[in-house]
Design a binder for these strands. Structure first.
Lengths: 350, 350
DNA sequence: ATGAAAGCGCTAACAG
DNA sequence: CTGTTAGCGCTTTCAT
């Protein structure tokens, strides 16, 4: 900056003004400075300016998720990036792999970088350590899972209700023996979805059979194996409710390998790209990941804009997308009133 | 920091030493300082330290891609994040949507933030404006597409060879009329893949029929329409080569809707999650996105470590994954020597 | 409209 | 082993 000032024959202060589009600078000087900037390839140092300016803005927000390679989270990141861009901020993004220690470490680093806000898809169970930072102006929004021991905004899906609706849909189709393929039991979303499953059984007076419940299926391979085992049991399930996308993939593979894909009903939580291309099409509870990101970003920047209203938990609605696999009738199906599943030429994907 | 020093009864310098794990500090003092740090919730300001320290390190690298919601790029980001973490850096990530202006703008911002390195999946055609920065120590690695008018490291796939191999595979299966579904004509990868397509036809003395070539299919819907039109033509294609994942999805939909999925061969560039679940399984040229990210990151950090060897273009190999759709025989197929396609119970996905 | 001086939070270099 | 001094690149404040 000094060099630029020297070359343009002005004081550093004038250079600063030009760089920051201060309208009070003489047009002639402005041009001279800009020329010098160009000649010397001067690039203002954001770090330095951040750290001198009164408002302390860093124009950075942090984003944490379990895994960006999961298309759901990638979509969320995309939406968050869009919001950040609209507010002239850049995004520090990190994948933390359901590792609580790592998550805490990353958050610490980000705070050291003086991010203005944090958008967290966090799988841990205590966020109290952020209390002080929130008090002193840090904006934090939780997506997909609510915060624990911390008052902060969050955006979550209606997991329990949606799971319940999906399972009731299967029961309405004539099923009573419905398997549950779950994710980590420690995950809040999985707990909620499992509750929804239980709710649905209860409302129809179907007793819960623990042999039909498989939890902690963290890979599609594990879900495939679990489904294979379930199918091999005597008095196995006639329908499967899968609580997340990877387990849905595993279930599909197992059903196919057993030749049961047209006989066993399947509803999965979370939509996926090829759900509408498979045969039968896969019935899913579709979430809108972009909505998570967008809403989360909006709330975050509203807070940064000075909004001090009470913290909110925003619930985004999901929708049951019927594509065929969830409409395969079960043994208690009444007389058909409609086609049991959509004709196979129709492909809808979201 | 001053407050911490005061509370611990030491000088700020000692606090700095403690925070930076300088081993020369007295253990007793160290503990006192750490207690004060804890009590005051002191968090060292990375910005300030970056900008004072001699080596000028920011522990930040920038990552640019067209779209994180594309699973291919998301996988790349994951791998890059892993490398960054291993080298104690954080990642500033940006989606630029094939927008050249925006790309330049984002790069400018990142340089203003003094990122140590840049990993770019860039679709633009001139990167000369980075020359000076590279000269003065900025590490830049291009992924997927090589740089233009700039000497920098890059990691690319063997697009042309792989596309040629795929198309020859179709011809070996008895096809002569093979459609080409392309991405943006301006995209280097698409140009390469199209060249591969042409190469293959030439080696078998099959004249190129421009009516079979559809370019600029940027959405799966456009590819679906293009395929539908191709199938409706008299003397249409008996096989389709799709140059990227979205067009492959579109082609599959069109083939299904026309009831031609078992009659028209299909090979797609880029693997996708459900390719092995569809029926017929989708034969693809599989790239390894994680390899791009890993290699790119390794090269970047090697450069940052002081490596001054000549810039390299690293070519990562692809593999043809035969799942059925690419093995549907064409009209010029000879007598079968093997099963035309794999039995439908086998699912391989990568 | 422009400039001079001070200082943001931290660390390099040196002194004790 | 610890403290002092100076200054990184910029912006604030105040003077001109």
């Amino acid at each position: 900056m000094r060099d630029v000032a020297k070359l343009a024959g002005v004081s550093p202060m004038t250079v600063s003004r030009v760089v920051n589009d201060d309208p009070t600078v003489n047009e002639a000087l402005r041009l001279r400075v800009l020329k010098a900037v160009d000649q010397l390839r001067y690039r203002p140092n954001m770090m330095a300016s951040h750290f001198r300016r009164r408002d302390r803005r860093s124009f950075t927000i942090g984003f944490l998720m379990p895994d960006v390679a999961n298309p759901f989270f990638a979509e969320v990141q995309r939406a968050v990036q869009e919001l950040a861009r609209a507010h002239n901020c850049d995004l520090l993004s990190a994948t933390v792999d359901d590792d609580g220690e790592r998550e805490k470490g990353v958050i610490d680093r980000l705070l050291g970088r003086r991010v203005e806000g944090l958008i967290l898809i966090s799988t841990t169970k205590d966020h109290g350590y952020l209390q002080a930072d929130v008090m002193s102006g840090l904006a934090v929004v939780f997506l997909d899972q609510p915060p624990a021991f911390l008052a902060a905004d969050s955006v979550v899906a209606d997991n329990r209700k949606a799971a319940g609706r999906a399972v009731r849909h299967l029961m309405t189709g004539g099923h009573r023996r419905i398997a549950y393929l779950g994710y980590l039991q420690s995950a809040w979303t999985n707990q909620e979805r499992y509750q929804g499953y239980c709710d649905a059984l209860r409302t129809r007076w179907v007793p819960l059979d623990p042999r039909l419940v498989r939890q902690d299926l963290v890979t599609s391979e594990m879900a495939e194996r679990a489904t294979r085992e379930l199918l091999a049991e005597e008095n196995g399930p006639t329908a499967v409710f899968s609580a997340w996308s990877r387990s849905t993939i595993g279930a599909i593979k197992a059903l196919r390998n057993a030749g049961r894909q047209d006989a066993t009903a399947l509803v999965g939580f979370d939509d996926f790209d090829a759900a509408g291309l498979l045969d039968p099409g896969v019935t899913v509870v579709a979430q809108d990941p972009a909505a998570f990101g967008r809403l989360g970003g909006e709330i975050l920047f509203r807070r940064l804009g000075g909004d001090r209203s009470p913290m909110t938990q925003h619930v985004v609605r999901t929708s049951l997308v019927k594509r065929g696999s969830g409409e395969i009738p079960g043994p208690y199906a009444g007389p058909r009133r409609t086609e049991p599943r959509a004709p196979s030429m129709v492909f809808s994907n979201r």
